[in-house]
């Protein structure tokens, strides 16, 4: 009888409690400012890389290893601060060199990145 009493008390207290629905917060992209000012940066998927462009024009961002290109993107940029998303799923978790080139394939900036998926 005592057990029954406790069960009733429990049901009374918790049966009408409003469900709490937890909404997972959207992950905010990580921004790396002045990526080329760092000697080495650990990079994860969809990280935003910030760097300055000297003028309007066509540029190349290159990921290379042992002086051979692994990934490259041609893009059009404008003078000033530029933000670029990097994706890492097609790459191995290794050390690479990140290079910024202009349209004439002249190397403008360079840094080391470590991919962590």
């Amino acid at each position: 009888m005592k057990k029954l009493y406790y069960i009733f008390i429990f049901l009374f207290l918790f049966s009408c409690t409003q469900d709490e629905i937890e909404v997972a917060p959207q992950p905010q992209p990580i921004i790396v400012s002045s990526i080329f000012d760092s000697e080495q940066t650990v990079v994860t998927n969809e990280m935003l890389l910030e760097f300055d462009l000297p003028q309007d024009g066509i540029y190349y961002l290159i990921i290379s290893k042992d002086e051979s290109v692994v990934s490259k993107e041609k893009f059009t940029g404008i003078l000033g601060n530029h933000t670029h998303t990097i994706y890492t799923k097609s790459l191995l978790d290794e050390n690479y060199t990140l290079i910024l080139q202009n349209e004439s394939n002249l190397e403008l900036q360079k840094t080391f990145i470590v991919i962590q998926k």
Binding site: L61, I63, S68, V69, V70, S71, K72, E73, F75, H84, T85, I86, Y87, T88, K89, S90, L91
Partner: peptide, 13 residues
């Protein structure tokens, strides 16, 4: 839903 192309593909000879 991509914003740029860097790293979306990689090449291995």
């Amino acid at each position: 839903e991509v914003k740029s192309g860097l790293g979306l593909v990689s090449i291995k000879p």
